[in-house]
Simulated scan of single mutants.
Amino acid sequence: MTWTEADYVAYLEAERRRYAWVMRRHGGRTPERARAAALAHYPYEPADAPHRGLVFHDEAWHWAMLEIHGHAYWSERPDLERPPPEYRALS
């Protein structure tokens, strides 16, 4: 996929926002800690980075659930396999 810089930055910020929301809502993090976790998980990658945006192959919900509940969270917590409507509304 070819990204314009504006597209990349907008998508990056949207994923950070969703990741932080999950970390607050499901991980019990403060807003500050949730934002810091989102920035760490979704660092800005320069346009010439060879795998820029690879983290986008799964959505923020999945990455945050892995951080909170660990590998195979979906089998241990099937209720968390899909994000709730509130998460979808963040888009």
Results as ranks from 00 to 15, higher is better:
Trp3Met: 14
Trp3Ser: 03
Thr4Pro: 06
Glu5Arg: 13
Ala6Lys: 13
Ala6Met: 03
Asp7Ser: 12
Val9Gly: 03
Val9Met: 10
Tyr11Arg: 14
Glu13Trp: 00
Ala14Pro: 00
Ala14Met: 09
Tyr19Ile: 08
Tyr19Cys: 06
Val22Pro: 01
Met23Trp: 02
Arg24Gln: 15
Arg25Gln: 14
Gly27Ile: 08
Thr30His: 08
Thr30Cys: 12
Pro31Asp: 12
Ala34Ile: 04
Ala36Val: 10
Ala37Ile: 03
Ala37Thr: 00
Ala37Ser: 15
Ala38Val: 04
Leu39Ser: 07
Ala40Gly: 11
Tyr42Gly: 02
Pro43Cys: 14
Pro43Met: 10
Glu45Cys: 05
Glu45Arg: 13
Asp48Ala: 11
Ala49Gln: 15
Pro50Trp: 06
Pro50Cys: 05
His51Glu: 12
His51Ser: 12
Arg52Cys: 05
Leu54Trp: 08
Val55Met: 06
Phe56Val: 11
His57Ala: 09
His57Asn: 11
His57Lys: 14
Trp63Lys: 00
Ala64Tyr: 01
Met65Trp: 05
Ile68Lys: 02
Gly70Met: 07
Gly70Phe: 00
His71Lys: 13
Ala72Asn: 13
Tyr73Asp: 01
Tyr73Val: 06
Trp74Asn: 03
Ser75Pro: 03
Glu76Tyr: 13
Glu81Val: 08
Glu81Asp: 11
Pro85Gln: 14
Pro85Trp: 06
Pro85His: 04
Glu86Phe: 11
Arg88Lys: 04
Arg88Met: 10
Ala89Pro: 12
Ala89Glu: 14
